Amino acid sequence: MPSMMDANVVLRLLALLRDGGCEIWVAGGWGIDALIGKVTREHRDLDLLHRVEQEPLLIKKLESAGFIEQPDAQPGRPARFVMKDHQGHELDLHPLRFEADGSAVQQANDHGGTFHYPADAFTTGMIEGVPVNCLSVAQQVAFHQGYEPSDRDRHDMAQLRTAFGVATHF
């Protein structure tokens, strides 16, 4: 079972990667908390998006901090991969290929499926008063569709509805 990710661990990892030359965006539950500007629940992992061409550097930086790729994580590559440290902190990493217009594509599977990110999907939020790159409200809402939501998903969408007045499908 993964160890909970608190804000100090998140900020330390974001600084490590940023200072190491990796451009990253926070997604998932931490991304929603960044948009809202406060921690609204416990988080068991940290979802990060990164430039696919920076992946070797990103892996090297994370390995230097004690993270090891977990090859059994499903679904796995090419859409995402998981790294975990000896304390159980878990990172869910999503490689993006950026286009000239600022949009990005994430490979979804080995059969040509993709996830699309419009250029305006990338914004800035705050974790403990520290600005962080994250996904936009609209992109978070879009990615929370088409599956049976968990209690965490329901919580996260309720937070976005309250903070931003957006409509969500659950």
Rank of each mutant, 00 (worst) to 15 (best):
residue 1 M to Q: 11
residue 78 P to K: 04
residue 26 V to H: 07
residue 19 D to H: 08
residue 31 G to H: 09
residue 54 Q to S: 13
residue 29 G to C: 05
residue 34 A to N: 03
residue 55 E to G: 04
residue 106 Q to M: 14
residue 86 H to S: 15
residue 79 A to L: 04
residue 164 F to S: 05
residue 9 V to L: 08
residue 102 G to V: 04
residue 19 D to I: 05
residue 56 P to V: 07
residue 120 D to S: 10
residue 4 M to Q: 13
residue 127 I to D: 04
residue 36 I to C: 10
residue 79 A to V: 00
residue 71 P to H: 10
residue 124 T to Q: 14
residue 97 R to N: 12
residue 12 R to A: 15
residue 91 L to I: 09
residue 45 D to P: 09
residue 9 V to K: 12
residue 13 L to Y: 10
residue 89 H to G: 00
residue 50 H to L: 15
residue 81 F to C: 05
residue 115 F to Y: 15
residue 145 Q to V: 08
residue 50 H to M: 11
residue 40 T to H: 08
residue 3 S to F: 04
residue 134 C to A: 09
residue 43 H to P: 08
residue 147 Y to G: 06
residue 104 A to W: 00
residue 47 D to H: 10
residue 160 L to G: 06
residue 100 A to T: 11
residue 33 D to V: 09
residue 151 D to F: 11
residue 152 R to K: 15
residue 100 A to V: 13
residue 92 D to C: 09
residue 148 E to G: 04
residue 54 Q to A: 13
residue 28 G to Y: 02
residue 111 H to W: 11
residue 146 G to E: 07
residue 28 G to N: 02
residue 137 V to E: 00
residue 70 Q to M: 10
residue 126 M to F: 14
residue 78 P to T: 03
residue 107 Q to D: 11
residue 151 D to I: 12
residue 157 M to K: 09
residue 72 D to N: 11
residue 160 L to Q: 06
residue 24 I to A: 00
residue 52 V to L: 12
residue 98 F to M: 10
residue 168 T to S: 07
residue 7 A to I: 12
residue 19 D to E: 15
residue 60 K to A: 15
residue 117 Y to R: 02
residue 157 M to V: 10
residue 47 D to T: 12
residue 140 Q to M: 11
residue 68 I to S: 11
residue 15 A to L: 07
residue 19 D to W: 02
residue 104 A to P: 00
residue 28 G to E: 03
residue 64 S to V: 04
residue 166 V to D: 02
residue 70 Q to D: 13
residue 123 T to V: 14
residue 105 V to F: 00
residue 46 L to Y: 09
residue 69 E to W: 00
residue 117 Y to S: 03
residue 37 G to K: 07
residue 147 Y to E: 07
